[in-house]
Structures are given as C-alpha cells and as structure tokens.
Design a protein around this nucleic acid. Structure first.
Lengths: 154, 154
DNA sequence: TAAAAATCTTAAACTAGTTCATTTTTTTTC
DNA sequence: GAAAAAAAATGAACTAGTTTAAGATTTTTA
C-alpha cells in the first residue's frame, strides 16, 4: 500500500509481519501499527470513505495476507447479517486498544511506553528493528538505543 | 463515575460537557476525552469486560445524559438485530478518530496537537479550562499557557 | 566472501517540555 | 460585593528527548 492510493482492501495476516506507517514532511517515518499473524490491517478510514490514505504498508518478513474488497465486505453484511455482530465486536475490541494507546501516548514517558510495549507484545518486540520500534514509540532511533540499553541494565 | 467502579452504563450526552480522565501515581490528571452534545461516553472496556475502570468522569457544565445498561444493550441486539449494524458503524467511526489521535500523540509536537485540536473541535476549545486542555494535550498547564500565548501572537 | 548498505552505539551540543515558585486574573462562595 | 479559591501568566533552573556526527556491528547483495 502506498500513501495517495485509495484503499481497496482490508487485510487479515495469516503469516509474517508488516508495518503501517506515514512519512512526515521531514521524511521521518511514524509507525502506526505492526501487524502479525491473526491481525487485521489496512486503512479503515480510507476503506470506508474512499479518500486517499496517508499510509504506507510494507512487509518486514515474507508474509501471507487475505484481502476483502469493499464490494464483498458490503455483500457479506447483506447476505449474512450475523457478520454485523462479528465486526461490531471486532471494532469494539480494536477501539479499546486504540483508546489505551492514545492515552499512553500522552501520559507516559518514552521509557514507560517501551516497557508497556514489551509487556503487551512480547511476540513482536524481537521481530522488528529498533529503528521501527522507535518509529512506533514516537522517538528517534538514537534515543531508542539509549532506552533499550538502560532498561536491559536494570 | 469513579476509578475502581465497574461501569454499568454507556452514556449519550444530550446537553452539557464532561471530562473523562485518569489520575496517575503523582496525582496528575490525564484527560482521555471531552464529551459534549451528541457524544457517547463512559468506559467501553470496563462496560464490556466488567473489570473496574481507571477513569473518573466529571461534568464541567450542567449536563443531561441518557444511559444504557449492559442488560438493555444486550437485549437491544437480541430484539432488534439491526442495531448491530448501527453500533458496528458507530465503533468503526470512533476507531478511525482514535487511530488518528494515537498517531498524533506520537508524531506531533504539543503546539501542533493544540492547533489540530482547535481546528477539529472549535466548539470545545472555548468551553474547557486551559488546565483541562493541557491534560488532554498531554502537557503541563504552564506549558499550555505558553503555547496559547505564542499561537495567539502568530 | 568481499564490498556495500543498513542498523546500532556513543557522545556532545541543543530544544521542547517540566518543575517550582511567585504574581496576576478570573471565578466561586458567603 | 468582599473574601477565598481556583485558574492563568511569567520566569529561572532543570530533564527528557533531538540533532548531528562519527565509529562499530550486522545484514544484504553481487
């Protein structure tokens, strides 16, 4: 996926690891999410509104995804209304985790955010580069390096 | 609503303004959201899981709310399955705005976050104290004061 | 497997944001 | 409408996180 495109699919990851990110005016990447096995990914805003996405998606490992198009997504609800419930609960859970993340972004220090990330995603922390982790935590790779060596020393 | 309670209701605001916030170990308040007319509020995580909430909710103006209990919420879906769709779309929209907020929290400076807030919520910015706004933006009231006078000077 | 490219580390100088203390302004209460 | 309480402003000293630059380590590619 490339910034500027209109998102045609939502993806479910069956294998691998991907990063979803924006690039700001200064060329600095900011990582919105990492998607590993059993995660949904894409840009739900662009998928819904058909406006262009600000995100790039790149696989960081060989990956396998399933995609659902807007047409099939709508059709799914029409033909099998029980899927409304499925997605209602899926979005509700997603919402809970994004509410938590947005609160942590404004109330925790970078070091605390790193410790939380490690605790919450022990399966991701060793699969991504420190540089990408820095982009997710919201700090520079240099400061990420300092934090990691400090936390490991503790 | 008080931290420690299990959330029994989700609320829809028909009049007024409320703040939803946590208080950290140092006694510093962090504001998760302001809820004005036509907003839903509460703690959806505690409402769903029946675990205790970390949030306080306080009205900052005289307010009127409608509340729905968990029992009635479940009953609603049972009796009128079309409401699954209604909530599916409601959560989908909410999700979009929290994804945006969590990205801004890690990629923008405090000044940029303030400017975005003013642009996105012109109807809220003048209804809340600077201190509460600081708690939402994620900075101290002192720094909020500096930013506001700087931005007004521009 | 050597060379090139990317990532990670370290350190010094800098800036965004905090802390603490004091004064001024606004709001609330009796 | 005076007194008290809360919010806002200001400034000086501080800390968390950035920037720039250079060297060390790991990964990728030919």
């Amino acid at each position: 996926m490339q910034a500027g495109d209109v998102t045609k699919y939502e993806y479910f990851v069956t294998k691998g690891c991907l990063k979803v990110y924006t690039i700001d005016e200064d060329g600095v990447p900011h990582i919105s999410m990492f998607a590993v096995e059993d995660y949904w990914t894409g840009d739900i805003a662009s998928f819904m509104t058909k406006e262009s996405t600000p995100y790039f998606i790149k696989a960081t490992e060989d990956s396998e995804l399933l995609g659902i198009s807007w047409t099939n997504y709508e059709l799914l609800f029409q033909e099998i209304p029980k899927f409304e419930r499925f997605y209602r609960i899926l979005y509700q859970r997603s919402l809970i985790s994004y509410i938590r993340r947005s609160n942590q972004g404004i109330s925790l220090t970078a070091e605390e955010r790193y410790i939380e990330f490690k605790k919450k995603y022990p399966n991701i922390v060793n699969r991504v580069t420190q540089k990408d982790l820095a982009g997710y935590i919201g700090i520079t790779p240099e400061f990420m390096s300092k934090i990691i060596s400090k936390v490991n020393r503790m």
